[in-house]
Structures are given as structure tokens and as C-alpha cells.
């Protein structure tokens, strides 16, 4: 190490190099537009698993074009790690577009079905709460009711907390889907032309 002094790097230890992904984690919402082909969901989820990206929710369905699906994926991670998610997703041939919409103005809704215990005496109270939260009762049984609710995750959490007092027998949530507000849209270059062609 005799030549160490020749090096112009300062004698004091330099700060450690930033390791990607070591920043503060937060929730991100990604939209992935993909070919609607068998196995595409598997490709996406396999990649997320293999690279240890933590999916909080993933909702998928086809778009206005039956050959194109759209996934809404919520993940936790620092900004760099989440940027990696989209870059890695782009490696998949069937992925047409990935957009992080976390900072965008958007509608972000999920749907929940909640089966609550509902006796003759509690029924009307449940209905009131559900109406207040713009949910609706979609099924009534002798001792239960199915509540359908759509809204943000927070809104649904709040409703779940309220009806929880009556006893939840069963619940299922779809995970959120998002759409940008106003005229903004998650658009795939090159695919738009095909779209107008189809309409005309």
C-alpha cells in the first residue's frame, strides 16, 4: 500500500456509495399494459417473485381491446427499487407499457364484498351505515347480508371497520384499479393507431 498517498482521493473515508433500493419505502401504484395472452400474468408475477418485489395488490382485466390487458400493481419500495420494477417488467416481451402513476391525479378504486352477520335487529343499522358509505346490500340471508362497496382502499377500510362490529363472516377485495383523471391516459405508443382503425 506504499503508493496509497499518490492517489488524490481524500485521506478521510469517502461516504459509502449509495446502494440502490436502500432508500425509504413507500407505496407505489403501477399500471402495466400487456398483451392479453395465456401465461402473461404468470410471467409478470414470476418476475416479481424472483426479484423479490413485494406486490401488495394486483388487479388484471382486459381493456377496450380484447387483445390487451391492463394490470394495476401496488408495490412497496423506494423510488429506485420501484423504477427497477418497471424496467424489469419491460424486459418481458408481452409488456407494452409500464407507468408509475403514484404522483398523478387519479381515480383509484377497489371493490369489496363483505358478508356480515345480520339479524333482524341489526339489519336496519347495517343498511344505514352501508348507505352512508355509498355501498349497497346485494344479498340478504336469514342471518347475513352481503355488502358491496367500491371506493378507495381507505374508504373500504373504514366501512370494514364499521360493519366489523356486527361480525364479518367472509370478505373479498379485488385490489385497486386506477385511471388518470381528466384527459391524461396510460397510452401505448403505436397501439393507438390500431385503436382508431378499429373504430372507423
Amino acid at each position: 500500500m506504499s503508493n496509497q498517498n499518490l492517489s488524490p482521493t481524500p485521506a478521510s473515508d469517502p461516504p459509502p456509495r449509495h446502494v440502490p433500493g436502500s432508500g425509504e419505502a413507500r407505496r407505489h401504484v403501477l399500471v402495466a399494459v400487456v398483451n392479453n395472452r395465456p401465461g402473461v400474468l404468470n410471467r409478470v408475477s414470476s418476475l416479481m417473485r424472483a426479484r423479490q418485489f413485494n406486490i401488495e395488490s394486483l388487479a388484471v382485466g382486459h381493456t377496450e381491446r380484447p387483445d390487451v390487458s391492463r394490470m394495476t400493481i401496488t408495490v412497496r419500495g423506494d423510488d429506485v427499487a420501484v423504477e427497477q420494477v418497471s424496467k424489469q417488467l419491460y424486459r418481458l416481451i408481452d409488456v407494452l407499457k409500464v407507468q408509475d402513476v403514484t404522483g398523478e391525479r387519479r381515480i383509484e378504486h377497489e371493490l369489496a364484498l363483505i358478508k356480515v352477520r345480520a339479524t333482524a335487529s341489526t339489519r336496519s343499522e347495517i343498511v344505514k351505515i352501508v348507505e352512508l358509505y355509498r355501498g349497497r346490500i346485494v344479498d340478504l340471508g336469514a342471518d347475513s347480508a352481503i355488502v358491496e362497496a367500491t371506493g378507495t382502499e381507505d374508504e373500504i377500510d373504514a366501512l370494514v371497520a364499521l360493519v366489523g362490529g356486527f361480525g364479518i363472516k367472509e370478505m373479498v377485495r379485488t385490489g385497486i384499479v386506477v385511471m388518470l383523471r381528466g384527459s391524461a391516459a396510460v397510452e401505448v405508443e403505436g397501439l393507438a393507431e390500431a385503436k382508431t382503425e378499429e373504430v372507423s
Partner: peptide, 21 residues
């Protein structure tokens, strides 16, 4: 490479920022 800035050229965007910033 504690004192180095890095210019990283790769055809795969997934390689950039993956292991080092």
C-alpha cells in the same frame, strides 16, 4: 469506487441503476 461518478451505457434499461446508482 468511492470517489467515482459513473457513466453507464447498456442496451438493457433494466441493468441501469440495478446494482449501483
Amino acid at each position: 469506487a468511492p470517489g467515482a461518478k459513473i457513466v453507464h451505457v447498456d442496451i438493457d434499461p433494466g441493468e441501469i441503476g440495478k446494482n449501483v446508482a
